[in-house]
Write a protein that binds this DNA or RNA. Sequence first.
DNA 1: ATTCGAATATTTTAGATAAATAGTCGATTC
DNA 2: GAATCGACTATTTATCTAAAATATTCGAAT
Lengths: 192, 192
Amino acid sequence: MIKSRTKLQIIEAAAATFSRYGFKKTTMDDIAFAAGKGKSSLYYYFKNKEDVFEAVAEHEAEILQLEIEKELEKIDKAVDKLRSYITLRMRRFAAKGTLYTALSDNFLATFSFIEKIRNNYQEYEKGVIAEILQIGIENGEFKPVDVHFTGEAILTCMIGFEVPLMTKTHDLNESEKKINEVIDMFFFGLCT
Amino acid sequence: MIKSRTKLQIIEAAAATFSRYGFKKTTMDDIAFAAGKGKSSLYYYFKNKEDVFEAVAEHEAEILQLEIEKELEKIDKAVDKLRSYITLRMRRFAAKGTLYTALSDNFLATFSFIEKIRNNYQEYEKGVIAEILQIGIENGEFKPVDVHFTGEAILTCMIGFEVPLMTKTHDLNESEKKINEVIDMFFFGLCT
DNA sequence: ATTCGAATATTTTAGATAAATAGTCGATTC
DNA sequence: GAATCGACTATTTATCTAAAATATTCGAAT
């Protein structure tokens, strides 16, 4: 979390370059140039290219988390918190998706380090959703469900919505409509 | 749908071979040998390798559809129909997943013909779910939602459950528990 | 503590050949 | 004529090698 001035500079330069060219096509020279440094200087701050990418991903996650916290604390009702969270998450995914999908030179492939980042982030997400559910239960808005288990279930559904965002030319608007439909189902159920 | 004896024989041999070795690693010779025919004979029945694969996929889909119809007509309540459908679908996916994921030499890759098959099948799925919803609405079990739109939304969520089934060593049992959680949310909602 | 140029190590690319496989066609059988 | 197949051609993939690109290290300079 304590990042030197230069380190941050490099991370931002790398973020721009990665999201433009993807992981594989981005060279350390590219990053160094974008950051206005010599290539070897990067190795003073980072172990290797993957390490730079990890730092970028972590940094993006931190920004997103701040954004989310700021947004959520403005909202009172758990129902609205959950809706906001899901919508924000999806928009951010659509926007920054390139960064993560661009490294899909071989997609789900050998990048075990990506798995690591993703898993970390999912843990955070489960936490946020569980917290919202907990608040809702205490509020009397939600039924007393198992917040962790239900949170995971909700998250898994959200992943279904990521798939179209990653592949084809997606219509974000269409997706948002559909996701709102799902959220309503989550809240109010289909049954009469 | 009208398949000659030999054609069916080839399809079955191909299905076994594809699901063992995947699309790319399976040669026309392999299929021919498994079917007890000469390689050139395959071309009497099929245009090319992709065509064989398509036929296999269609055949599997037909079998699954029969299975599903048989199962669903035994059930009265729409609620139970939907639950059954989703569970059946997931089990079948877990079982036959190899067939479709094995061709993931490059996964989402250049196989546009796979996309075609998948899209066709998704149309069928949307139809089934919409039909169940319609029945439920007429029954008075479900609220009067837009069956096509809601059907799509449900299907998209299901795709989220496919992802873990495709990648890691998945625990089908865990997935079923989670999916049942989601179905209950769909039915009864979170809200009090 | 930082930076970087120069050197080394590793990975990717290109080109060229051999091997494997896809797909064609005419002859043959039933 | 419908079905089969062996022999042939066309394409694609695998293998190898050398060159080029890129990642990473290191020690001198700031």
